[in-house]
Computed example of a mutant assay.
Amino acid sequence: MAIDVQPAVSPMLTVSDGAAAIDFYVKAFGAEELGRVPGPDGKKLFHAALRINGALVMLNDDFPEMNDGKSATPEALGGSPVTIHLTVTDVDAKFQQAIDAGATVVMPLDDMFWGDRYGELRDPFGHLWSMGQPMREVSQDEIDNAIKQHQ
């Protein structure tokens, strides 16, 4: 039997507490846990898989001993240069749900010049998330003019 493999790009998040991260993502984003692989101590997770907003998101606990002795969490690195974006419906409710679950606001929701209602959050593990909901069609001329006005 052949295995059907579809091309995909899926984030793999390193966190300081995998079990707590799964709980947070379920509460904040309505994640569905697909499975987890515990490490040898039974406490840390070698691997976990979630479905968030229809997409696969993987995560693992931090194992510095498997990373040249270096921690790879956003906290240890002084933040994350990557933002994971969720296109959603009812962005105001979903954004508030994430806040209620423990996310902190990085950029409040606002109606943006490119046509989305958009905002950014930081989860309790240091990862950045943005949420957007398309609200209106915007022409390239409108975008160009809005950018010129912000310079």
Rank of each mutant, 00 (worst) to 15 (best):
M1W: 04
A2R: 13
I3C: 00
V5F: 14
V5W: 03
V5S: 09
Q6I: 03
Q6Y: 09
A8M: 12
V9Y: 09
P11E: 09
L13S: 06
V15T: 12
V15C: 06
D17Q: 07
D17S: 13
D17E: 10
G18K: 11
G18F: 08
I22P: 04
I22Q: 05
Y25G: 04
K27I: 00
F29C: 03
G30M: 08
G30V: 08
A31I: 03
E33H: 03
E33G: 03
L34G: 06
G35V: 06
R36H: 10
R36Y: 02
P38S: 10
P38F: 04
P40W: 02
D41V: 10
G42M: 11
G42W: 10
K44I: 00
F46L: 15
F46K: 06
I52S: 10
G54S: 11
L56V: 13
V57F: 14
D61K: 12
D61W: 08
D61Y: 11
D62Y: 04
M66D: 08
K70Y: 00
T73Q: 06
T73S: 03
P74W: 07
E75I: 01
E75Q: 14
A76E: 02
A76C: 01
L77C: 13
L77I: 01
G79C: 02
G79T: 02
S80V: 06
S80H: 03
V82I: 15
V82E: 05
I84F: 14
H85E: 04
L86Y: 06
T87I: 06
T87S: 11
T87E: 13
T89H: 10
D90T: 02
V91R: 00
D92A: 07
Q96T: 12
A101S: 04
A101Y: 03
G102P: 02
G102S: 07
G102V: 04
G102T: 05
A103V: 01
T104S: 15
T104D: 11
V105E: 15
M107V: 14
M107A: 08
P108K: 13
P108M: 10
P108I: 10
L109H: 07
D110R: 13
M112F: 11
W114P: 09
G115W: 08
G115S: 08
D116L: 04
R117Q: 04
R122G: 01
R122I: 12
P124D: 06
G126F: 02
G126W: 07
H127D: 05
L128H: 14
W129K: 09
M131L: 15
P134Y: 07
M135I: 13
M135F: 00
E137K: 15
E137R: 13
V138L: 07
S139Y: 02
D141I: 11
D141Y: 01
E142M: 05
I143R: 09
I143S: 09
N145Y: 01
A146W: 10
A146F: 06
A146S: 13
K148V: 01
Q149G: 06
Q151A: 13
